[in-house]
Write a protein that binds this DNA or RNA. Sequence first.
DNA 1: TATGAATGAGATTTCATTCAT
DNA 2: AATGAATGAAATCTCATTCAT
Lengths: 211, 211, 211, 211
Amino acid sequence: MELGKVQQAAVACFAQRGFAATGIRELGSAVGLNSATLYHYVGGKEDLLVGIMNDCLAAMISGAEQALAGSNDPVRQLALLVAFHVGFTATNPSTARVTEYEMRALSAKAREQMQELRDAYEQLFADALQAGERQGSFSTVDLGIARLALMEMGTGVSHWYRKDGRLTLAQVQLNFISLAMRILAVPDEFPLPAQQLPVPRVIASEPTSKD
Amino acid sequence: MELGKVQQAAVACFAQRGFAATGIRELGSAVGLNSATLYHYVGGKEDLLVGIMNDCLAAMISGAEQALAGSNDPVRQLALLVAFHVGFTATNPSTARVTEYEMRALSAKAREQMQELRDAYEQLFADALQAGERQGSFSTVDLGIARLALMEMGTGVSHWYRKDGRLTLAQVQLNFISLAMRILAVPDEFPLPAQQLPVPRVIASEPTSKD
Amino acid sequence: MELGKVQQAAVACFAQRGFAATGIRELGSAVGLNSATLYHYVGGKEDLLVGIMNDCLAAMISGAEQALAGSNDPVRQLALLVAFHVGFTATNPSTARVTEYEMRALSAKAREQMQELRDAYEQLFADALQAGERQGSFSTVDLGIARLALMEMGTGVSHWYRKDGRLTLAQVQLNFISLAMRILAVPDEFPLPAQQLPVPRVIASEPTSKD
Amino acid sequence: MELGKVQQAAVACFAQRGFAATGIRELGSAVGLNSATLYHYVGGKEDLLVGIMNDCLAAMISGAEQALAGSNDPVRQLALLVAFHVGFTATNPSTARVTEYEMRALSAKAREQMQELRDAYEQLFADALQAGERQGSFSTVDLGIARLALMEMGTGVSHWYRKDGRLTLAQVQLNFISLAMRILAVPDEFPLPAQQLPVPRVIASEPTSKD
DNA sequence: TATGAATGAGATTTCATTCAT
DNA sequence: AATGAATGAAATCTCATTCAT
């Protein structure tokens, strides 16, 4: 039995019912394991959640950093970030949702650690936005609000995107780049060719059943 | 003891810790009532939540309908809707969040009822968007995504808006109208004077402590 | 609102669900009264039960004594007792059942009092049996067992007798007299004409719905 | 810890205080088990009761069938049945009482199942009585009442029989056979030699403390 | 006479977790 | 690696009862 399977089952349950409402026996039976056996793989319910969130946030940060490396132009960098963010969320909707929603379920200590990672991730967006504004590429009423709106928008993708839905992942990514450019009053709606869109990976904790 | 006080305490707890993680004794002590006494006012934990959500969604629908009545022009109507949505969320952040997050905590029967209300609310946005597009006022890559992005953006306000923060409610509303107009490629970023912004009311379940 | 109505509702509930399983609110709503109001009529759940049992046992004792007065012959006296016992049980099945079953629900003090009455009632049968045996009218393997069997038999009537059933009350009474005479080896199966059968009264606590 | 011990404790409590009045913590402490541990062995209070009643009724049916196999003559068959019934009740007084009394405590679904078993058991008596009457061995005013009286009488044994009492089990059985024969007007009061009396077994749920 | 409000105690049941095997 | 047994703590909810009105 691999850790990934356990994480997948956990994410599936946590995303649907929430962390607090999910029993550890429920998780066990979802992977065919006795509840006591789970304590061999993961040490308690919170450790399981922390592991999932940590992996997810780490993947987000490294993915975003990789995306940033694709260009030196703040405009294109922001487009890359938005594309990655949307892509990651659409590729790992359940894990992303759990990582966002269940911060409150953590103990103070663990929450602080996770929050640091989350802050680091958001800072990448803030930095790119500021760089673009400094060179006069962006125009907004309020840069802070724009950043929050952009990220919230992207996160919301997890609520409705389906792999076999009306739109391909690339289409959604381009669409959101367009939205972002408009929000930032960048004349060129598509500063990025489709070939350069970051292709996010499925992370281990993402359950496969949800097409 | 009024029902409103109980609802406020409940919303405060549910918003912070989540419905499943909040005990009914906790709620009782938050309003200085024995846990058994709570069953006088509300019949069980779920009934309490359903009452809160129902009131909230009803207020959202009627508020949005009132906002729509402020103009016949789809562009201005959409601006009014966005302003109302953002305003309501900023005015009732905890209640709005609970109403959105805790749908999953409901039993099948209650969830269906609440989902109907939620759908009705979202349909008001979809209708306004379609009306504007039909008359050529809006231009988007995909109208569906634009709507989802718009609403998600507005809902996200509950995460960061503070009454005594950097921006006034009206400023935030105008800001979001601007974002919306850009997203929809409407040339006029401010189709609505500040005097016509809808002023949402605080609903009974919204706790006051959160400034 | 009369005490009798409350007792009737209580007996109906106690007979069906049992004393411990019947809530005091249930009783209240059965007679259209607030649970608190019941404390005006009866002082607590146990007092209600004690009142019912006391009335029932008093009626049984006085009824049995009246029956005994109908003859000086031990054989006929026993027949009268059996006829009364069966008649009372069939006329007040629910109250009789509650009085028998729920002795265990009483507190020690109340139980003792009720048990005294019950003992007094059973002693009437024991005395009649001994008198008959002393004069050689009865023949049994064991007089004690005979008495227990006779009484148990009669009590069982509450389980199946229906006012509108196959047999009239008088028929059932005669039938049981016959059984008793056979058990006691009395040659005359019907020492009592139908006109002399005791006609038990319906007591106040007996609900009327059960035909 | 064996299931039998739990059942014994449960039967002892149920017989004395009644099912509804017995708490599950009470049961736990009676066998030295945490209340939560009881849910390992039995799944909830009703399941425990259903298990007990089911075992009891199964034992009664199979025991009665074995008894019936001891003869082809309806008279002797009835004597065997009565002897078994009395014997079983005297051997397992608490379990028998609980099984009879607590039918009402069951949920509709479980009650139906148990009632079916009870009906099957009683049908064995009804059949034997009818067979005997058809061949002219029995004479009664009413066969139905005779059956009810016979069974009730036997069941009542649980109220007074003590293993170390005045009479041995065989004496009680013979005594009741005699009563039955008299009730049915069979000339031979003892159609069964003491050696052929069925010897009922103690079932697992019967507590031992009650001598 | 009648009641809504209120409560402490206790009901059954589930929880995450530990431990010997 | 895996598990059944076991448990303290806590979950939701119901209870009989009191009291001010």
